[in-house]
């Protein structure tokens, strides 16, 4: 069940009442923030709330990369895999990070702490290589300092 708080938050993104469904991507973001990921139940609830079919909403939810249709860890690491970061050492950073966490790309650490996914250009190519952890951007990432970088994210 969508809580009243979540419904209120979704309502704040319905700017034109005749176009309720337009708020569906914002709604997915909101629900994901509260629940970590978007399960089938969330799809059904949000679709019903916005007057869409669940298939319609799922076709949207599976199209966009910032929505997770599978469980993820408490923190999501998005490592920039695009061209400037590649020139500046993406391969080594990716390998080092995955080795440090003991997971493969797209996987979650056994303690449920981190999920690592590749992301396209993060828009800070002058400070490559870059990655995001949750909402935080980290620039000029140094492989040797990975441990300290991850430390605050428990």
């Amino acid at each position: 069940m969508l809580t009243e708080d979540i419904k209120k938050e979704i309502d704040s993104h319905i700017h034109e009442p005749q176009h309720r469904a337009a708020a569906c991507t914002e709604a997915l973001r909101i629900v994901q923030r509260h629940r970590g990921w978007i399960d089938d139940e969330s799809i059904r609830e949000v679709a019903a709330y916005l007057g869409m079919s669940s298939h319609e909403l799922d076709s949207v939810a599976t199209f966009f990369n910032l929505i997770h249709r599978r469980p993820v860890g408490r923190h999501v690491i998005r490592i920039c895999a695009s061209v400037s970061c590649w020139v500046m050492g993406y391969d080594a950073l990716r390998d080092g990070l995955l080795k440090h966490l003991g997971v493969g790309m797209g996987q979650t650490t056994p303690d449920g702490r981190f999920t690592v996914v590749p992301n396209q250009c993060l828009g800070c190519c002058d400070h490559a290589p870059a990655l995001m952890i949750d909402r935080d951007l980290h620039r000029d990432v140094n492989l040797a300092a990975l441990k300290e970088l991850l430390e605050p994210y428990r």
Partner: peptide, 11 residues
């Protein structure tokens, strides 16, 4: 939307 790889100006 600024997602063109190598682009960081609108930010």
């Amino acid at each position: 939307d600024e997602m063109e790889p190598g682009t960081f100006k609108d930010r």
